[in-house]
């Protein structure tokens, strides 16, 4: 019953090059779709205030905050939507939201 593998095209494309119904035939490729383009603000870390509690990492609804080698945290801005939840939850105040233009 399983459908033969249909070729996955790049994304996004011209209207007539889209797969019918925008189906996506390759599993696990959501990472290729950079969803961070529409944010108006982005988080900026001040690691001198960071106590490495990981709260920002846990609360980020996009799952785009990663732990760095030295135990601090940073956001992958390709997927960050600028919601500011990390900055709101960071109780030592190590994260501030900055306008995209800045």
């Amino acid at each position: 019953m399983a459908k033969k593998k249909t070729e996955q095209k790049k994304w996004p494309e011209k209207w007539h090059e889209l797969n019918p119904g925008c189906m996506v035939f390759a599993a696990g490729n959501a990472a290729n779709y950079k969803t961070g383009s529409w944010k108006s603000q982005h988080p900026v870390w001040d690691n001198s205030k960071c106590i490495k509690c990981g709260i920002c990492y846990i609360f980020c609804p996009e799952g785009c905050i990663q732990e760095t080698q030295d135990g601090f945290y940073e956001a992958n801005l390709d997927y960050c939507k600028g919601c500011g939840i990390c900055a709101h939850e960071c109780w030592p105040g190590a994260i501030v939201m900055r306008e995209e233009e800045e």
Partner: peptide
Amino acid sequence: DNPISMGCFAMPDT
């Protein structure tokens, strides 16, 4: 046996 995605998300670019 052959996972695919239907009903995906599309931003203003698509």
